[in-house]
Structures are given as structure tokens and as C-alpha cells.
Design a protein around this nucleic acid. Structure first.
Length: 434
RNA sequence: GUGCCUAUAGUGUAACGGUUAGCACUAGGGUCUGUGGCACCCUCGGUUCGGGUUCAAAUCCCGAUAGGCACCCCA
């Protein structure tokens, strides 16, 4: 690269706040996580869906709701030249629900089991495990009957995902937030209770009492924590149907031996949730980055966007958070065994021939590394060594005349000349023996 | 969105307001264009940006930007 004196005048760029590059060094984590999710999806019979990143902003306004910070404060919105008001998706669920309606997936076998992996955008203050663009793995079960077994299945999927990634000490917290019949009644009771203690509440909670009373149960202020101990417990106030539904979910979890804690303070930030809500955490302060998978039931969502009442349950997990936990817990995935060989040349003519040989070997499905741009053989072998490669192929003048290639085992230095036409076979044989 | 903390080569770090900004790793090259790991030698590369104070700023002040932490909220 040529140096210039124009450095001052050339603008340099940084990535936008809260948006990060994923570099090759992190790819093993991504491959592993995406691979595990895809495999689990397959085994549970979930089909992949990818709705667009951009949707009409109203899709989220109408569903995620008034009291939702995710939509009210954190959504990236834009107006197109044509005047459309769009939003970068701040979550997956409404888009998938929209796709379900628009593509008439309700006409296919019910329920539809769908999963998605892709970027999500929220304009938040970044922290560890919290970025403005991040990636979610999302599972949704839409349609069919309102069977609590689907709630348990979604939880089971995320439980398996964490297990597959060797994330141990996971805690599952469960709660039910009722339906449109029992929730308003409970809300009223809760408000009444807190109104009597309004003077003891913290500033935020006084505000919450008006905007989102359920959130009062989530406050960490000392006084408020004390107050909520005597607050009415939603689990006692659920209507018979909701209570039975929740009980069944828990029974199914028992049946597949997934442990859980009941947490009546657990609420969701989004308006469309009903009944089951859950969150999973990795224990340990080194992994203190909030919930990993989380989700719940959202039977009313489809109605909010012009469909009929459709049972639905789902959840999502942040990939970057998983990676943060894996790194914090120093969980490393075993590097793939060396399935690569290395081709080195000695001399200009050999360099040309090696270039052609590379292409040939690759066409036969052999993974070959090289450092043909380096002239000395030792420099090339150094690269091979650094890449942890076990078999080096060496091509020089002599070999070209003999129509052969030296096959050298880098672990013990033993080498032999192999005829070019026998080479692919020989390589495959050696790799297989490892 | 609020409050607090931080910012020196790619990474990790050093430098009473006055040093050629030092060190280790990494990277590139060489000793060694017919053989890697070890060793030795050489090289590239830095004070986040913009203002100010001062004879003098990596160092002090202000602002911006980014990162982290707590809150808010959330995957």
C-alpha cells in the first residue's frame, strides 16, 4: 500500500455505534450455534422462514404495543421516498405472524412450526451482550389448537440448544400472565394494592403504576421489593382455564425432566403476550448478561393484525449473548481435525504447475492450502505449520520431470514421491487414516 | 434515554507536563528459493478525533466518538 500525505484530508470510518463486525476468528462460534439450531429445528420439524428485515412500522406499533419500550423508544424507523413509514425489525414475531397470514400458512398443516435466524435492530445503549444490531434465533409455533404441549415444546427446544452448546447451570423461570379475562382483574387488584402504598414507592414505580403496573413486580429498589412480597400473586388469581393451561405446561416440563422455577415477577415487555412466559439464564456472574432464550404465548397477536384468533407460542435467543456466555465460561469448541493438505512449490516453473495442480485437487474435493506467493520453500512450510496442517505436498523441478509430487507427513517428517495420477487417492487414503 | 468509568502499534502493557513513546506477543522478511516446528537478526506498525491551557501535552481541561458498568429495558 502506497503512503500518501493526504491522511488528514481522507475521511476514515468507524462502524456505527452498537453495530459490530463478525470476524473470521469468531466464525467457529457462529457455525456451531447456527448449526445446532438448524439441526434441532430439523429434529423438531420446524421449517425455516426468513421475513424481510424491513416491515411497515405499524406492524410493530399495532402489536408490540403502547407500553413497549422496544417499539416506542428503540425501533429504527425510516420514511421512504414514496412516503412509506418502515421499520427495521425490532423482533421477529410480528413479521412471522404477518407472513403466516399473508401466505395463508393457516391453510397448510396446523400448527405451522417455524424458525428463523437473522439480524434484529434496537436503538439501545450498548453493553456487553447488548448491541443495536444483533442476531436472534427464533422459534414459533402458530395455529392449530391451544395446547400447552406446544409451550413445553418451545421451551424444550431452547433447553436442548443450550445443552448442545454445553452451557450448563441453566435456570428456567416460568410464569403465566393470564388471558384477557383474568389479567384485567388482577391488574386492578394490583393497582389497588399499590395505590395504598404509593408514598413508599420509588419514583420509577409511581410512573410504572400508571403505564405498566405489572412491571412494578420487577423493580429492584429495596422498598419496592419489600412491598411486592405482600402484593397479590397472579398465579393465585388466574382464571380456571389459564391456571389449568399453565399447570399442564409445567407437567409436560416435568415429564421431560426440565427443571424450572416459578417466578411471579416475570413479565414481558411486549403487549401481545398471554399466559405462558419464560426466560432462561446462564448462572454465574461471569455470564451476567440477562436472559438468553425468552418467550411465551401470544394468542392475541394474530387478531391485532387482522387475522382470526390464532393460538401461538414462541421464543427467541440472542446469538451474541450465547457467544458471550461461551466465551465467559471459556467453552471452546474442539477445532476441526486437519482435513486440509498444503501444496508448496520450489522454483518458478513449479509455481505455475502448482497453481494448476491446486485447481485440479480442489476440483476433486480436496481442501488445499498454499502460500504460493512466498518464494522460499521454508517460508511456505512455515505457513503450513502455523495452519496446523498434517500433510504437505511439495512440487519442484525434479518432480515435474518425474510427473510426481512429494507427500510429506509434517508430524514425523517422513516423505515419499507419489505419481501425480495417484495423488488424490493417496491424499484421501492418508486423511482417512487419521 | 439517564448517571459513572475508560481510551497508547493488531493484542496486552510501560512512560514525575520535557524519553528518539519502551517492552512482550502477533505480523512481514532473513539466516535457510529443495524442506516446517527451535534459535538468532532485521522490519512494519501507536498516543481515537477536535479544540484549549502551557515555553513544552500520551500526560491537565473542554467537547465529540467508541467501549464498559449501573439504571431503564431487553435476546
Amino acid at each position: 500500500m502506497e503512503k500518501t500525505n493526504e491522511k488528514e484530508t481522507v475521511r476514515t470510518f468507524q462502524s456505527v455505534k452498537g453495530m459490530h463486525d463478525v470476524l473470521p476468528a469468531d466464525q467457529p462460534y457462529w457455525d456451531r450455534i447456527v448449526g445446532a439450531a438448524t439441526e434441532i429445528a430439523r429434529s423438531y420439524g420446524f421449517g425455516r422462514i426468513e421475513p424481510p428485515v424491513l416491515e411497515f412500522a405499524d406492524l410493530y406499533n399495532k402489536t408490540s404495543g403502547e407500553g413497549s419500550d422496544v417499539v416506542q423508544k428503540e425501533m429504527y424507523t425510516l420514511r421512504t421516498k414514496g412516503g412509506d413509514f418502515l421499520a427495521l425489525r425490532p423482533e421477529y414475531t410480528p413479521g412471522i405472524a404477518r407472513a403466516y397470514l399473508e401466505n395463508a400458512l393457516s391453510r397448510l398443516g396446523q400448527p405451522q412450526k417455524l424458525f428463523a435466524i437473522g439480524p434484529i435492530f434496537r436503538h439501545e445503549r450498548p453493553q456487553l451482550g447488548r448491541a443495536r444490531q444483533f442476531t436472534q434465533i427464533d422459534f414459533e409455533t402458530l395455529g392449530g389448537v391451544n395446547d400447552p404441549i406446544y409451550d413445553a415444546e418451545i421451551i424444550s427446544i431452547f433447553w436442548d440448544l443450550l445443552g448442545e452448546l454445553k452451557i450448563k447451570n441453566t435456570v428456567l423461570r416460568m410464569n403465566s400472565i393470564g388471558c384477557r379475562i383474568c389479567r384485567p382483574i388482577y391488574k386492578k387488584q394490583l393497582i389497588n394494592y399499590y395505590k395504598n402504598h404509593e408514598k413508599e414507592l420509588c419514583e420509577d414505580c409511581v410512573e410504572r403504576l400508571k403505564t405498566n403496573p405489572l412491571r412494578l413486580l420487577d423493580c429492584k429498589e429495596e422498598e419496592c421489593v419489600r412491598l411486592k412480597e405482600k402484593a397479590p400473586n397472579f398465579l393465585d388469581k388466574l382464571c380456571v382455564t389459564c391456571s389449568g393451561h399453565f399447570k399442564s405446561v409445567l407437567e409436560y416440563l416435568d415429564e421431560i425432566a426440565i427443571p424450572y422455577e416459578l417466578d411471579n415477577h416475570l413479565v414481558r415487555g411486549l403487549d401481545y403476550y398471554s399466559r405462558t412466559v419464560f426466560e432462561m439464564y446462564a448462572e454465574g456472574k461471569e455470564a451476567d448478561i440477562g436472559a438468553l432464550p425468552a418467550g411465551g404465548r401470544y394468542d392475541y397477536l394474530m387478531e391485532m393484525i387482522g387475522g382470526s384468533l390464532t393460538p401461538a407460542v414462541g421464543g427467541a435467543c440472542g446469538v451474541e449473548r450465547l457467544i458471550a456466555v461461551l466465551k465467559a465460561k471459556e467453552i471452546e469448541f474442539a477445532p476441526k481435525a486437519g482435513r486440509r493438505v498444503f501444496l508448496a512449490h520450489a522454483g518458478d516453473l513449479a509455481k505455475k504447475k502448482a497453481f494448476a495442480l491446486l485447481k485440479d485437487l480442489r476440483a476433486r474435493g480436496i481442501m488445499v492450502s498454499e502460500a504460493l506467493a512466498r518464494e522460499s520453500l521454508s517460508a511456505q512450510l512455515k505457513v503450513a505449520d502455523k495452519e496446523n496442517i498434517q500433510i504437505a505436498l511439495i512440487l519442484g523441478q525434479k518432480e515435474i520431470y518425474e510427473n510426481s509430487v512429494i507427500v510429506r507427513d509434517l508430524r514425523n517428517g517422513v516423505q515419499e514421491a507419489v505419481l501425480v495420477e495417484r495423488l488424490p487417492e493417496e491424499i484421501k487414503k492418508r486423511l482417512k487414516n487419521d
